[in-house]
Write a protein that binds this DNA or RNA. Structure first.
Length: 581
DNA sequence: GCCGTTTTCGGCCCGACTGTTTTCAGTCG
């Protein structure tokens, strides 16, 4: 997609200009790159509709960058970029991914040793050639070698669900240290991003020395990056870094806000502060030298004329404006959920029986679940055919009777996860689908069709009156499989038109729809269900990850159908599809 | 190169830590 191509070019230009020590322009290109990265509409259409004027309406894009975008759209090239590249033909993204290596060092490396990529860098470092460069030494050389080793091992981020238990274990140990009065997580962990860069921990302590000592000596610590009295940073044996900061109590709110981010959100806040003749940093909000807020986040936001806002939406994507006008969303909570609408059992590739799944769900406080085993064309899972589906329905009927007799109000609905074939048709006959309570359709194959074909394929399933929901609509697996190519605007439009739900799948490496799609779909009037896609009773407990993602997408309780109590859910599925929302 | 409820010119977030220095540049968040 052109938007992403251009974003990448501008990011690269920013780095190259930074190397040249050009002032201010790097930030400008970086910001423009970021704008394009998150731009919903295709830049080609944007330009076609409104020309260079329309381009200038994009935030952080002014006359200069608009002209360069135009040049790229017309010729496929940007002369300034080509020039920069020619002058410094290096793999700058690769080199700057090495921890401790920034633009200035990259410049010296290239000018003095001709280093263009990580391979060159490793070779020179191993040969001891770095230590003699200006402001270099043996220690820096060793540090770079270590960083390269790490980069090779795992330069990716870590999936939230892998990090959360580890962080919580460390947190609970640290909070027991004598003198520690308060402990909170910050950063991407607190914002519940789908992947986490590192673990940020803030504490208030009247005995910083002890806290720092215990932190860097934890059994998980593999390497100490830095150890000071207010900040220490370590690498843990799982490969993730953890930072511990000790902050004064009267600054805790300011520090928590600051280190939670994200960066864009913070910059926006600082600008508001400046406009009001305040100064905001990680210690407090100041008027002159006087602290006027800082003990809590709430008082900082309030003094800046904003409502406090949940960390999940602190992205500078409209939440600041909403905080000013008191129109922040009332984000969905896990306690709002009354059912799970995607549950697999041992009828196919699940580990537990229908009854076991139902009992566990009831324990979690739900009022209902839908059994959605795979269908026949998904052979590897032993998918059900029409006959088996009808047999399963009878079994479910029995289970409901037993539940009823035992005084439970819990209900098990019949359903399926029907497979969408290459041409968009389904692998189960409509007459059988019509007999099930609630049916999901999903793509499990042919991931590489063109955008046009793929969109047509999914819309065909959406238009089927028996399909209540599309499960994991983009089929991505985080860090393993990219999303399929779809015209998401068109998908959302058709989902709304036909009354088809879209899933926010809570399984930690799917989280599909992702936050930005959920937000856009909501804007277009689409409704969701948040489901675990459980294949065992333990999976039923993963629901919070779907909630995190939904919250990041500004989703509220009323947008999500499985927040409905049993009676209302029944009413919902009884209505014809196109009359539902 | 961008931007504007003080500005179409003159600002652009800022502090901690490290490694190399001998007063500070570079990186990171």
């Amino acid at each position: 997609m052109t938007n992403q191509e251009l974003a990448k070019i501008f990011f690269e230009m920013a780095e190259l200009l930074e190397m040249e020590e050009v002032e201010f322009k790097p930030r400008a290109y970086e910001k423009a790159g970021h704008s394009l990265e998150v731009l919903e509409e295709d830049i080609n259409l944007f330009y076609k509709k409104g020309g260079i004027k329309a381009l200038e309406s994009i935030p952080a894009v002014g006359r200069g960058i608009a002209e360069r975008i135009e040049e790229y759209l017309k010729t496929g090239k940007i002369k300034d970029y080509e020039k920069l590249k020619k002058k410094t033909p290096i793999n700058i993204f690769e080199l700057s991914a090495i921890e401790g290596v920034g633009p200035k060092i990259i410049k010296v490396l290239y000018k003095k040793l001709g280093i263009k990529n990580i391979k060159d860098l490793e070779k020179s470092a191993k040969a001891g050639k770095l230590r003699n460069l200006p402001r270099f030494g043996e220690k820096l050389e060793q540090k770079i070698l270590k960083s390269i080793k790490f980069y090779k091992k795992s330069h990716q981020r870590f999936i939230l669900s892998d990090v959360l238990p580890l962080a919580e274990s460390i947190g609970s140990r640290l909070s027991k240290i004598k003198g520690v009065q308060k402990l909170e997580f910050a950063g991407s962990l607190r914002r519940r991003m789908e992947t986490i860069g590192d673990i940020d921990i803030l504490i208030v302590s009247d005995n910083p020395k002890t806290a720092m000592k215990i932190f860097v000596e934890m059994p998980e610590v593999e390497y100490i990056h830095a150890k000071g009295l207010t900040k220490s940073s370590v690498r843990l044996n799982t490969g993730i870094d953890a930072d511990l900061r000790i902050v004064p109590e009267q600054s805790f709110g300011a520090a928590w806000q600051y280190f939670t981010g994200n960066k864009d959100h913070n910059i926006a806040l600082r600008k508001i502060a400046m406009r009001n003749d305040y100064k905001l940093n990680e210690y407090a909000l100041f008027k002159g030298k006087k602290q006027i807020a800082g003990r809590t986040e709430e008082e900082i936001y309030k003094k800046l004329g904003l409502e406090w806002m949940p960390p999940e939406i602190r992205e500078n994507q409209g939440e600041i404006e909403a905080g000013q006008t008191k129109t922040l969303p009332n984000l969905i909570k896990i306690s709002n959920l009354k059912g799970d609408l995607q549950v697999q059992t041992n009828w196919t590739d699940g580990a537990n029986s229908i009854e076991e799944m139902a009992k566990e769900a009831e324990k979690l406080g739900y009022e209902y679940i839908v059994i959605t085993d795979h269908t026949r064309s998904l052979a590897m899972t032993g998918g059900l055919d029409e006959k088996k589906l009808l047999r399963q329905s009878k079994e479910i009927e029995k289970i409901n009777k037993i539940l009823n007799v035992s005084g439970s109000r819990f209900h098990v609905f019949t359903g399926a996860e029907v497979n969408i074939l290459k041409d968009g048709s389904l692998d189960i006959k409509d007459e059988v689908l019509g007999k099930l309570d609630f049916v999901g359709a999903a793509i499990h194959s042919n991931f590489h069709l063109s955008k046009k074909e793929q969109t047509k394929r999914l819309i065909k399933a959406i238009e089927n009156p028996n399909i209540d929901i599309i499960f994991h609509p983009t089929t991505r697996v985080i860090q393993k499989r990219p999303e399929i190519e779809l015209d998401m605007e068109e998908i959302f439009k058709q989902a709304k038109k036909t009354g088809t739900l879209l899933e926010i799948n809570a399984y930690p490496d799917r989280l599909d729809l992702k936050d930005e799609y959920a937000r856009r779909a909501k804007e277009m009037g689409v409704k969701f269900a948040i489901n675990t896609d459980a294949h065992s009773i333990s999976h039923l407990h993963l629901m919070e990850h779907g909630i995190f993602q939904a919250r990041r997408g500004w989703v509220e309780k009323d947008d999500v159908i499985n927040t409905y109590p049993l009676s209302k859910f029944l009413e919902f599925i009884k209505k014809p599809k196109n009359k539902r929302f």
